[in-house]
Nucleic acid binder design. Structure first.
Length: 123
DNA sequence: TTGTTGACGCGCG
DNA sequence: GCGCGCGCCAACA
C-alpha cells in the first residue's frame, strides 16, 4: 500500500511489518527475561540477552534498558555487566539509583562491584 | 549504502 | 584482580 513497487522486496517487507521490525520481539523477549530475575539476584547483559534468545546481543539488551521509562516496573537495576559492575557512569543518576535499589533488595555492593559468584542468576 | 556509536563480552598481559 | 584491545550485533546519521 505504501511501498508500492519500488525495488519491491515486498514479501520480506511485508513479513517485516508483520512483526514490527524483528527488534520488537527481541525487545519483548528481553522484558520477559528481565521479569524472571528474582529479588536479590543480578544478571549480566549478555546473559539476559541469551535468556531472551538473543546470544551475542548483549549490547542490544543495554540499548533496550536505556530506553526504559523512569516509571517502568521492570527490575532493570538487576542488570549489570559481566564485570559484576554497574555499567552506568559514576555520578550519573541511574548509577546511584541502581546501586541504591540493589542494596534495598539485599544485594551487597562492594566497591561499586557485585559478586556475581553469589548474586549471579543462573538459569 | 557506508561509517560511527553503544547501559557489552571475552581473551591477554 | 585490573586495564587494554578486538569482536559482535543493531540502531542511527
Amino acid at each position: 500500500m505504501k511501498k508500492t513497487a519500488k525495488t519491491s522486496t515486498k514479501v520480506a517487507d511485508a513479513a517485516e511489518k508483520s512483526v514490527g521490525t524483528a527488534l520488537a520481539q527481541s525487545k519483548a523477549a528481553i522484558y520477559l527475561a528481565l521479569m524472571n530475575i528474582p529479588e536479590g539476584k543480578v544478571i549480566a547483559y549478555g546473559q539476559l540477552a541469551k535468556l531472551a534468545g538473543l546470544p551475542g546481543n548483549a549490547r542490544l539488551a543495554g540499548k533496550v534498558l536505556s530506553g526504559l521509562p523512569n516509571n517502568t516496573e521492570l527490575p532493570w537495576h538487576r542488570v549489570i555487566n559481566s564485570q559484576g559492575k554497574i555499567s552506568l557512569p559514576e555520578g550519573s543518576p541511574g548509577h546511584a539509583e541502581q546501586k541504591r535499589r540493589l542494596e534495598a533488595e539485599g544485594v551487597v555492593v562492594k566497591n561499586n562491584k557485585i559478586s556475581l559468584r553469589i548474586y549471579g542468576y543462573n538459569n
